[in-house]
Design a protein around this nucleic acid. Structure first.
Lengths: 135, 135
DNA sequence: ATTTTACCAGAACTTTTGTTCTATTAATTA
DNA sequence: TAATTAATAGAACAAAAGTTCTGGTAAAAT
């Protein structure tokens, strides 16, 4: 019985793996084995924990999406550019407004997110892809 | 408890009973199903991706530990307090040095980490527990 | 019709971080 | 022994973010 099948079984699944998924699993199996050996724990246990960790990350991302949707168009623009790492001055130049206005929008959107700084915003939305806003 | 042990603990290095693991799996199944449904993808595929993501996080943490160990005692102090969210002034007061000196140590430790700002440091070490440095 | 609210715009002032430089000391290297 | 390096300490200046305030307009509520 393969590791993946062990995992699926642990998770209560009884599906067979197709060929594509198996290839991806090969590298995962290797990583999992390395990690499990390092931790001296069974692979399936390590895998379950890693999944739990990853899913928690996703749940937080879901909540942030709801907050994102409450932003005004302008606030979303500013938020995206903040997360892309631009300074107020750079954002201002891009949106043809003043840096002070950027700060105002930043303040407002942070309030809607319930965050205290743009660093927190960048941290909260770290897994998001804002490349579409970077034209 | 050493920092390494703290880190391992944060990374979830602890023994669990079969029973605990089983309970965790039930919630995992639920979460996985929800996520897979949302993404309209097979559960095992989503799980593989999540695992991949989680393992990448772990690898990065390992690398950061090596960099941490290259820091001088003072640099570790400053790094820990930075990650706990203190300002230069606050750190200076605590270590009875000037804020300028804090900045110098910050500069030096960031160089050793290969990072550009304290925000990046806080991001890189986000999963670490620095409470022991917060007396 | 008037008031309220959300959105967009902006400025003055403060705080914080970043950048570049200087100096001393102990340990190591040439 | 002199030179080099790492660690620790510090300051001047610049850039960036944070804080508090103001103002105009359109739409919704009173």
């Amino acid at each position: 019985m393969s590791l993946w099948q062990q995992l699926l079984r642990l998770l209560g699944y009884h599906k067979t793996t197709d060929r594509f998924t198996f290839e991806a699993d090969a590298s995962l199996i290797h990583s999992l084995q390395g990690l499990a050996k390092q931790q001296r724990r069974p692979e399936h246990e390590v895998a379950a924990e890693l999944l739990s960790f990853a899913i928690a990350q996703r749940d937080a991302a879901e909540q942030n999406l709801q907050r994102w949707e409450q932003l005004s168009p302008r606030e979303q623009q500013v938020a995206a550019l903040i997360c892309l790492g631009y300074t107020n001055r750079q954002i201002a130049a891009r949106l043809t407004i003043s840096p002070e206005t950027v700060k105002t929008h930043a303040r407002n959107l942070l309030l809607k997110f319930g965050l205290g700084s743009r660093e927190e915003l960048r941290f909260a939305l770290a897994g998001w892809d804002f490349s579409a806003w970077d034209r």
